[in-house]
Design a protein around this nucleic acid. Structure first.
Length: 343
DNA sequence: GATTCGTGGTG
DNA sequence: TCACCAAGAAT
């Protein structure tokens, strides 16, 4: 029954919980809501390994939500560079301001859900982990574990309602935060996407998928569309040991991030090859980059001259401080291509 | 409900 | 190499 499953899982968690920087000791005092919120936002569609250095950097630089709220958005965006899904960073700043204005994080799921960047998952996770509130926490791990545990054959995402009901039925009143994290740890270490280490699993005897003999085939998922391939060009313009950077529009792809000027490529179409200024251009090579929904082959062209640029359309960024510019990975690759060829 | 949002790891 | 995947949210 449900009490049995949560008890088995919590017992397992007490001995097998991953030690993570944003976590409290299992069964112990509740962790700092700021650290829980920050880590949960960073972990959205992002692996633990990728998050760790960013979490450490943010906590060192902005130890409290008030400190983060006081930071210029531009600095937060630059610090987020490389982690992806940049709307998260924009919402992070908005949310920090709102929480500071409220005098602290709200302690219930409904109020948390109203904050920028907190959807169903994150609101439930923060309520459970940071405030000990019973909330049904459903992420991709929980979906997978529940689909196997209850042998849900209906394909995702259609099966989400069914899976949520199963998750609700096994979520305990006591230690809901540890329970949620235990489900995610189980999904991350034993009940993984391509494998199911059932011989090590504390829920083996309760698992319908195990009983059927093929838990690793669950959950069923609908096929994904193929990614279109796009081509475009980025332009390297340099003067006095500084490179010309622009800022991308606030919304959309790489929104609000610094970037190299480009020829108008988008997810929907190729660039026109047209440079932002006339003069001699020399090809530096090609960078390949895979986004969520398309692939890009980005040519990098270097301007031969020593041009003047209209100051209101961008900024000259000193090459020796280029890492501080916070370029998204695509443009960091392009810059590396240009600079590496000089050695 | 379907799309649009990054990036790095993995088999 | 390539398709899939990861502590999803906003529109």
């Amino acid at each position: 029954m449900s009490a049995t499953i949560s008890t088995l899982l919590l017992d397992w968690y007490d001995g097998h919980a991953r030690a993570l920087p944003w976590r409290a000791v299992p069964g112990g005092a509740l962790p700092d809501p700021y650290r829980v919120w920050l880590s949960e936002v960073m972990l959205q569609q992002t692996t633990v390994a990728a998050v760790k250095p960013y979490f450490a950097k943010f906590i060192e630089r902005w130890p409290t939500v008030e400190a983060l709220a006081a930071a210029p958005e531009e600095e937060v965006m630059a610090a987020w560079a490389g982690l992806g899904y940049y709307s998260r960073a924009r919402n992070l700043v908005k949310c920090a301001a709102k929480v500071t204005e409220m005098g602290g994080f709200p302690d219930d799921e409904v109020a948390l859900r109203r904050l920028p960047g907190l959807g169903d998952y994150t609101a439930a996770a923060v309520a459970a982990i940071a405030f000990g509130q019973r909330a049904v926490v459903v992420d991709a791990n929980v979906e997978r574990v529940a689909a196997r545990l209850f042998a849900v054959e209906e394909p995702l995402p259609g099966a989400r309602k069914t899976i949520r009901e199963h998750a609700d039925a096994i979520t305990p009143e006591a230690r809901p935060g540890d329970f949620a994290q235990a489900m995610m740890d189980l999904g991350a270490t034993l009940c993984t996407a391509r494998d199911a280490k059932c011989l090590l699993c504390p829920l083996r005897e309760s698992c319908a998928g195990y009983a059927r003999g093929n838990p690793q085939l669950l959950p069923v998922k609908t096929k994904k569309k193929p990614k279109p391939r796009r081509a475009g060009t980025a332009f390297w313009i340099e003067r006095d040991k500084a490179v010309w950077l622009v800022k991308r529009p606030g919304k959309g792809l790489l929104g609000g991030m610094r970037a190299l000027p480009d020829d108008g490529w988008t997810a929907r179409g190729d660039g026109d090859g047209e440079a932002p200024l006339s003069g001699g251009w020399q090809g530096a090579g090609v960078v390949r980059h895979v986004f969520t929904h398309f692939e890009l082959e980005l040519g990098v062209a270097i301007h031969a001259g020593d041009p003047a640029m209209p100051e209101d359309t961008g900024e000259w960024w000193p090459l020796e401080r280029l890492e501080e510019a916070g370029l998204p990975t695509l443009f960091a690759k392009a810059a590396q291509l240009v600079l590496a060829n000089r050695e």
